[in-house]
Amino acid sequence: MVSSREFNRDVSAVKRAAASGPVIITDHGRPSHVLLSFADYQRLTGTAGSLGDAFVLEEEIDFEPLRPRDSLREVDL
Rank of each mutant, 00 (worst) to 15 (best):
D40M: 12
E59I: 02
L77Q: 06
S50L: 07
F63D: 01
L51R: 05
N8E: 15
S32D: 10
D27L: 12
V14F: 13
E6S: 08
R30P: 04
Y41T: 02
R16L: 11
E59R: 11
P68L: 12
S3T: 14
P68S: 10
F38D: 11
S12V: 13
M1R: 15
S3R: 02
R43F: 00
Y41I: 05
F63I: 08
S12D: 14
L44Y: 06
G49C: 03
G21Q: 06
A39E: 12
D76M: 10
R30A: 10
R30H: 08
E74C: 06
D10E: 09
R16D: 15
P68T: 08
D10H: 11
L44G: 07
S50V: 05
D10G: 01
M1H: 14
R43N: 11
N8R: 12
D62K: 00
A19E: 15
G52L: 07
S71D: 09
Q42F: 00
S32A: 14
A39R: 07
R73I: 06
I25R: 04
F38G: 06
M1K: 11
D40Q: 14
V56S: 03
H33Y: 10
R16K: 12
S3Y: 03
R69N: 09
F7I: 00
V23Y: 03
V2D: 03
D10M: 01
A18S: 13
R5A: 08
A19F: 01
I61C: 00
S32K: 13
M1A: 12
F38V: 15
E64A: 13
V34F: 11
V14Y: 12
L77R: 12
L36A: 08
L57W: 00
D62N: 05
L44M: 09
F63G: 00
P68C: 04
V14A: 04
N8D: 14
L66W: 00
L66F: 14
T45K: 01
A48E: 15
L57Y: 00
S37K: 04
A48D: 10
R73E: 14
D76N: 07
L35A: 03
L57T: 08
S50E: 10
V75D: 10
Q42I: 02
D40I: 01
G52R: 03
D70I: 08
S50H: 07
R30T: 09
S20G: 08
L44S: 07
S50G: 13
V75W: 09
A48R: 12
A54R: 01
